[in-house]
Design a protein around this nucleic acid. Structure first.
Lengths: 138, 138
DNA sequence: CTCTATGCAAATAATTTGCAAGCAC
DNA sequence: GTGCTTGCAAATTATTTGCATAGAG
């Protein structure tokens, strides 16, 4: 696990328990955002089962500490990915098979100033997702 | 109600019932996306109550016909707005008071070709939401 | 009349909360 | 030891489904 993560956890008064370590490992091993249920399943598969509630609580805590991002694809469940130094980016999901692919781009940064000027809001984040059909499902 | 809506409904074999008319009226009267529960509440306030289930079924049907857009703000409930000739646009929501404001812009159109080139997906839609603090809540 | 739509009850699904016991520090 | 954590059970919230009846065309 990245030492910056350990620092953030310690700074937040969080303890390094066995289930927590396993949850972080699962997240770090996943190249794409995954659901709480996914994490739960992979923990079981790795013979390090943790209660689904524990997964939810840890994901919420990690999000508060800014260690994970949430990705909402409007299918009734939230997905999570470690930030872990990765650049801010977005995703595209196939309407056929549900596959998610990283999009290593963000066209929004330049636009934030315009949005702030128009709305007088202080913009602090945005979400952007694409949907379509992947080569196999077209 | 816009006649194009009537046409789309008729073309889909849909009937113009009293609850459906009231639901459409509520949607048309709302300048911003609202939840199923919002629609339900406003129907009651207007003395034209309809079952929440009826609201959900109508919203789903209207979405299938392309008459309403869905807006997901990742707070656990979906919001709906009539398309009704309005231009494709996005929203910003205040993290303090939850207020939603229309953003009459979409920076994504030009980017779709790039995303398609990079991923080989056929992109058919996207979602984009901003979050921040409104002037009153800052 | 026929077929879609509605209301009510009950079922799902994702996520959250309460609480006593467990473990990290 | 003390306080954050966990697991289990139960509660909540949003949304969906089954089915008999009501109403539009």
């Amino acid at each position: 696990m990245a030492s910056s993560m350990l620092d953030r956890l310690k700074a937040g008064g969080k303890k390094l328990t066995k289930p927590r370590k396993a949850i972080l490992a699962v997240l770090e091993q996943s190249p794409l955002p995954i659901t709480a249920a996914d994490v739960h399943d992979r923990l079981k598969a790795q013979r390090k089962p943790a209660d689904l509630v524990t997964v939810y609580r840890n994901l919420a805590m990690l999000q508060e500490l800014g260690l994970v991002n949430t990705v909402g694809l409007h299918d009734g469940q939230m997905r999570y990915e470690v930030r872990h130094g990765r650049e801010h980016h977005h995703h595209i999901q196939c309407r056929g098979c549900g596959k998610i692919v990283d999009l290593m781009l963000c066209p929004i940064k330049k636009l934030t100033a315009l949005v702030e000027a128009k709305t007088k809001f202080a913009v602090d984040s945005h979400t952007l997702e694409f949907f379509g059909w992947c080569p196999q499902c077209r």
